[in-house]
């Protein structure tokens, strides 16, 4: 369990507000710099024909634009593409960087997915107000085609479901990352005990789970950005 606890590297606090730089913060900086480096290397290339790492980045970004953004938000939703793509790439890199030994999965700490989900929640509400006006935004809580007698029931349900969305978004990512890495940890812990000829069995389990985690990290990044696009389309889309 101690592998998943935060270790303070540089203590830092303003009054009673603790802003310690933990190993999760450092890992997030590393993943941001890694992303920046990848994009720097690929953007520096000139010409239409991509080479090297630019192939992968172009394929990923094209997939996000066509399959996640345009499918949910339509053609005019392309202005949300940078937001969704940034979320996708950050979650993906954070998930994958935790698979390296002596590293740390930033998304397996509840604070990081909660911050990302709160960002998505706030952005969706702000965009809903900006696109539809404040009255149109409030209208969203009382759907069309429902008799006004049901409003006292429907409006609290809509408010609760709106507030539950970022919660489920955060807990899904957190639980997947924590559980997957915890299973690897449990398998590796089994190799420390037991007779020598049985140690290979949990080791194979750990290897298989690590390979599965690569897939899970990709799927979770996809789902996180997909749900962001769906929430945006609910807030922004046709009334």
């Amino acid at each position: 369990m101690e592998h998943f606890l935060l270790r303070v590297v540089v203590p830092l606090s303003i009054g009673s507000l603790r802003l310690d730089i933990t190993q999760a913060v450092i890992i997030m900086w590393v993943s941001c710099m890694l992303l920046g480096l990848l994009f720097f290397l690929s953007v520096r290339q000139v010409g239409m024909i991509p080479r090297g790492v630019r192939n992968i980045l172009e394929a990923i970004l094209l997939f996000i634009r066509e399959d996640i953004v345009k499918r949910n938000l339509g053609l005019e939703g392309t202005c949300y593409f940078p937001f969704v793509a940034t979320l996708f790439l950050f979650v993906l890199i954070s998930n994958w960087i935790g698979l390296f030994p002596h590293s740390f999965t930033a998304t397996s700490n509840i604070n990081v997915p909660a911050a990302l989900a709160f960002l998505v929640f706030a952005y969706v509400q702000v965009e809903g107000i900006r696109r539809k006006g404040f009255l149109g935004y409030l209208r969203h809580y009382a759907p069309e085609g429902i008799p006004p007698a049901l409003y006292p029931i429907m409006i609290p349900i809509e408010i609760i479901s709106t507030l539950a969305k970022p919660f489920s978004l955060a807990v899904r990512l957190f639980a997947n990352m924590l559980a997957g890495h915890m299973v690897i940890l449990v398998f590796l812990g089994m190799t420390a005990t037991g007779v020598w000829f049985l140690k290979a069995v949990p080791l194979c389990g750990a290897v298989v789970m690590a390979m599965f985690e690569i897939f899970v990290g990709l799927i979770q990044a996809y789902i996180f950005s997909m749900l962001t696009a769906i929430y945006l389309s609910e807030a922004v889309g046709a009334e």
Binding site: M1, A175, N176, L178, M182, V216, I219, Q220, Y222
Partner: peptide, 24 residues
């Protein structure tokens, strides 16, 4: 289907996280 499986799997993982918390 894979997307739906990821949603369903998240429900099982909530239970796994609770189990880990209870154990540790």
């Amino acid at each position: 289907m894979v997307m739906g499986i990821a949603f369903v799997e998240a429900l099982a993982l909530y239970g796994l996280v609770i189990a880990f918390f209870l154990v540790f």
